[in-house]
């Protein structure tokens, strides 16, 4: 399908343009910020000469566009600057914290989809019955709960009052000491399984329950609502009535016929769920002290840590753009009506 390849190339170029555009915007905006990065670098009690020296070292005396090109060059070659706060290379910090966020995000997305999408289908097939109303109310409740408040409440109930789940973090401190997880991928659940470290696996699992549920809440409501309206739209179509006229039994229509029509919009639902999951990760990480990119970025913002901000922006843009690209391509591939 050469048409498909053309589409692929077009979308990749578009994706690159978006990422570059975003990096430019962020970079220039960040440089325009009122606080002086050189002063931040050397700290509060520095003397003016030290600030000057820092400025030259950081390359801040060069014209803006030169700084940008240097930055891009560094970015591509993998040196993403040094964090003003942790004094470590940004890329090292990101590599440390990214897997934690991804693990949490994937867990959240999984829960949201597994709960939200089937409930949406059921609600649509039993439209206007009690089941439908119950599902819609559930959807609204999850869409309206502030994630930080839900996190706090869950912590209160399960960690303090009931005491059955851990309060925060990824791993209990004693487990981290006695049964440390060998780092293969950085995903605690995966790594502990791969190395047969079942004590750590159980501990990591317990730790991830509350944060992932909190994270999943909003996306669950969103998935439920969007899947429900998609299915209702499909079930209203003429070809569903025609299928009934040809004697197709209801369960065949629901789970074979109509489902395929609904898959394509469902991918859109997944894409949007994913975007909101990334948004929610920040708040959830802060509440649960989860050592991921969210907490790292939050601290970076409070400390006016340029290089981190710009790097994280580029990364999150990249992730979203790539994900959307993949979803779009799958959609285009599946839909026979799209002329490629």
């Amino acid at each position: 399908m050469s048409g498909f390849r053309q589409y692929l190339v077009k979308r990749i170029i578009l994706a690159l343009v978006i990422v570059i555009g975003m990096s430019m915007i962020t970079f220039f905006l960040a440089r325009v910020a009122p606080s002086d990065p050189a002063a931040l670098w050397v700290g509060l009690h520095a003397r003016p000469e030290q600030v000057e020296k820092a400025r030259i070292e950081l390359g801040l005396d060069k014209p803006l566009y030169v700084q940008y090109f240097i930055y891009i060059r560094d970015l591509i070659s993998g040196s993403w600057g040094i964090s003003y706060r942790t004094r470590r290379p940004v890329i090292e910090d990101i590599m440390n914290y990214l897997p934690a966020s991804i693990e949490l995000a994937v867990a959240g997305l999984l829960i949201a989809s597994v709960v939200g999408i089937p409930l949406g289908v059921i609600a649509a097939s039993k439209k206007d019955t009690r089941v439908d109303h119950a599902c819609r109310v559930l959807g609204v409740l999850t869409l309206s709960t502030p994630s930080f408040w839900m996190g706090l409440t869950l912590q209160l109930i399960f960690a303090r009052i009931l005491g059955i789940l851990p309060l925060q973090g990824r791993l209990s401190p004693d487990v981290a000491e006695m049964n440390p997880i060998q780092r293969i991928t950085g995903f605690y659940l995966l790594d502990s399984l791969l190395t047969g470290n079942f004590i750590a696996f159980q501990d990591a699992l317990l730790h991830i329950i509350l944060p992932s549920i909190t994270l999943a809440a909003y996306s669950t409501g969103l998935s439920l609502r969007m899947t429900r309206s998609t299915m209702i739209e499909v079930l209203r179509e003429r070809y569903i009535v025609a299928a009934k006229a040809f004697g197709m039994p209801k369960n065949v229509i629901m789970f074979y016929y109509a489902l395929k029509n609904a898959i394509i919009p469902t991918l859109t639902v997944l894409g949007i769920s994913f975007a909101w999951t990334l948004t929610g990760v920040f708040l959830v990480e802060v509440v649960f002290n989860w050592p991921g990119l969210g907490t790292y970025t939050w601290r970076a913002i409070l400390a006016v840590d340029y290089p981190v901000i710009v790097a994280v922006t580029v990364i999150s843009t990249l992730i979203i753009v790539v994900t959307n690209l993949i979803l779009d391509l799958i959609q285009a591939y599946l839909d026979p009506r799209v002329k490629l």
Partner: peptide
């Protein structure tokens, strides 16, 4: 009893052959 409809394009499911 079989029935055929007025708009054949709308009566056929677009994502199946």
């Amino acid at each position: 009893i079989s029935m055929i409809f007025q708009d054949p394009l709308a009566s056929l499911n677009p994502v199946f052959t």
